[in-house]
């Protein structure tokens, strides 16, 4: 090649794409995601049993009462969903009024000045308004509150199983159908998300139960709507992002030849 010739042609990014590997995609879904899903459905009762026992032990270590363990139904003909039963602590009026004042004051601060309209301010305002509604509910009709701490515990566990199933299906589809690169990397992404979900689900369960038992069920709606699954998506997408960045690096360096143009 003459020295004045261009040594490399840089292909435009415009119409490049990757070769589809449908067999790999099908195998990933059938041999990895589907068995994982079946295992999860068969053993979610064991998971909730371990999680609930751990929560009961930790709450007792923290000076709480010895909680009982009960079981509810998540999916018919599959195992029960175990949950801890703790006594319900009702809020007193001073606590309700204090929370109400803090909520309204914070919402006012967030909706004025330079903070107004910023995403975090909007998010916090919506969440604080939910807590304000809870305060108003307890203020006007404490006895009408339909949930005990036992109900919340049951709902949390069911929601947590829902998170595990949904996350496995969602990341399975994303990694199986849209994913590229080493199978091990994709499997690791799925496993990381599921492990993080198990750990966070447990830690949050203990924390929620402790706060609701120690302070009162006034915080129940806030925990359910603000600190629940919304936060799970942060680590879900964060782990996906780490995995995708690795794929971008590989396809821009080592695997340039895998690109197809149009």
């Amino acid at each position: 090649m003459a020295s004045d010739h261009k040594r490399q042609i840089y292909f435009a990014r415009t119409y490049r794409h990757l070769k589809a590997n449908r067999a790999e995609c099908a195998l990933f879904l059938l041999l990895f995601i589907l068995p994982c899903l079946v295992l999860l459905l068969l053993f979610y009762d064991e998971l909730t049993w371990v999680m609930t026992n751990g929560a009961v032990w930790m709450i007792q270590q923290a000076g709480g009462p010895r909680a009982e363990i009960s079981a509810g139904t998540f999916l018919p003909r599959l195992g029960p969903a175990y949950y801890a039963v703790l006594p319900t602590t009702q809020p007193d009026y001073s606590l309700i009024l204090g929370n109400l004042a803090v909520c309204l004051g914070t919402v006012w601060v967030l909706s004025t000045g330079p903070r107004k309209g910023r995403p975090v301010a909007v998010y916090l305002s919506i969440m604080l308004l939910i807590h304000t509604m809870a305060c108003a509910f307890f203020l006007l009709g404490k006895d009408l509150m339909p949930y005990t701490l036992e109900d919340f515990s049951d709902l949390y566990i069911k929601q947590q199983i829902g998170i595990w199933i949904t996350f496995l299906v969602l990341i399975g589809l994303v990694m199986g159908v849209l994913g590229r690169g080493a199978i091990l990397r994709r499997m690791l992404t799925v496993v990381s998300i599921m492990l993080y979900s198990f750990v966070l689900g447990f830690v949050r369960y203990v924390l929620f139960l402790w706060i609701l038992y120690r302070f009162s069920v006034l915080y129940m709606p806030l925990m359910f709507f603000a600190l629940g699954p919304f936060f799970d998506f942060l680590y879900f997408v964060a782990i996906y992002a780490i995995s995708t960045n690795g794929v971008i690096r590989i396809y821009n360096t080592k695997k340039k030849g895998d690109w197809v143009w149009a």
Binding site: R13, R16, H17, L18, G117, R118, P119, V120, V122, Y123, I126, V174, L178, R180, F230, F233, L234, Y235, V237, A238, Y240, A241, I242, T244, N245, V247, I248, R249, Y251, N252
Partner: peptide, 28 residues
């Protein structure tokens, strides 16, 4: 996942780490 695919096609590294933050944009 659509943004992740777009960044892969564009070959843009590291910006994908910002993806979790779009969750906060959701309420906005």
């Amino acid at each position: 996942y659509e943004i992740g695919s777009a960044l892969t096609m564009d070959g843009i590294k590291n910006e994908v780490y910002l993806l979790p933050l779009i969750m906060y944009n959701f309420y906005f």
